[in-house]
């Protein structure tokens, strides 16, 4: 048996080779714009505008220096991005953990429907609710405020958070909750001392995903902020309108905007994969 399986396992087939090549090709096509952005960020504006693409050049930090210190104040936007992304994640966790807990452990006849309904709100194009939200924000003085953006991001990400946390909670055996109940734990104690530690990998991956979603969000940031609460998405967009097409500076700004979240995602990828596949195999 082992004799017959061993060679077939190590045999390189034509189909396998072609599939590997295709995978590399797709990866390169997907990664190339990112690579080009990083390369352009280290070029001068002249090199960046050159009709003939330049792969070999002397790198310069000038565009990064301009992007950070010249007028547009990168740190202001980055701070806004950080506050809205992290803040909305924390607020979201505070609100969705009890909601998901109730739905997972004390379901009603309408729980499944409610879950589907919540996710269905994500099907509505953002542009469809732009005017109502804009008007509400304007009349309540939330336009161009961090608090307004934070509230918007929180509510925007709540359906996906509830859905994810609900699935992690569902993986916790019911007997453990009952054991805690018999041991004398109240609902809050059961949640804090038993359920949350057990669902921690899932909660972490939810938090990471939602932070990334909020960080990358550009539509609402551009639409309801101007300068005060504007995030990095607005900062990047501002290059085009205010400063013309300065490719090298635009690329440096984009690298600065995307780097933190890429680094975060890279560091947390194991945690995320673990969280996203939590309970997939018993």
């Amino acid at each position: 048996m082992s004799q017959s399986t061993k060679p077939s396992a190590s045999r390189i087939t034509l189909g396998g080779t072609l599939l590997t090549l295709l995978a590399y090709l797709v990866a390169i096509v997907m990664f190339f714009p990112l690579l080009w952005m990083i390369l352009t960020a280290f070029k001068t504006e002249q090199q960046a505008m050159s009709i003939v693409p330049q792969f070999i050049f002397t790198p310069t930090w000038q565009s990064f220096h301009d992007a950070i210190f010249q007028g547009s104040a990168y740190t202001h936007y980055a701070w806004n991005s950080l506050i809205t992304a992290v803040g909305s994640t924390f607020l979201g966790l505070l609100l969705t953990i009890p909601a998901a807990y109730a739905m997972a452990f004390y379901p009603s006849k309408r729980t499944d429907f409610t879950l589907v309904w919540m996710v269905s709100t994500k099907f509505i194009p953002a542009v469809g609710v732009l005017i109502p939200i804009f008007l509400v924000f304007r009349s309540s003085g939330l336009l161009d405020t961090r608090f307004g953006l934070l509230m918007l991001y929180t509510s925007m990400n709540m359906p996906i958070m509830i859905w994810m946390i609900y699935s992690y909670f569902k993986e916790v055996p019911k007997e453990i909750i009952e054991a805690a109940d018999i041991d004398g734990a109240g609902t809050l104690q059961t949640m804090l001392r038993v359920i949350l530690p057990l669902a921690l990998p899932g909660l972490t991956s939810t938090a990471l995903l939602v932070t990334i979603l909020a960080w990358n969000e550009s539509f609402w940031s551009i639409m309801i902020t101007n300068h005060n609460a504007a995030t990095l998405a607005t900062y990047i967009a501002s290059f085009r309108s205010a400063e013309g097409l300065y490719w090298a500076k635009l690329s440096a700004g984009s690298v600065l905007a995307s780097a933190p979240i890429i680094v975060l995602g890279w560091c947390a990828q194991r945690q995320m994969v673990r969280g996203l596949t939590f309970g997939a195999v018993k």
């Binding site: 007997e175 009952e178 054991a179 109940d181 041991d183 038993v194």
Partner: peptide, 27 residues
């Protein structure tokens, strides 16, 4: 249940996986 002064042993044991044996018993 928590006010009935009972203790239960479950079929699946229902131990708290994140706690040590000591903490499970002391909970």
């Amino acid at each position: 249940a928590k006010h009935r002064d009972i203790a239960m042993v479950f079929q699946s044991y229902a131990l708290y996986p994140h706690m040590s044996v000591h903490d499970n018993m002391a909970f």
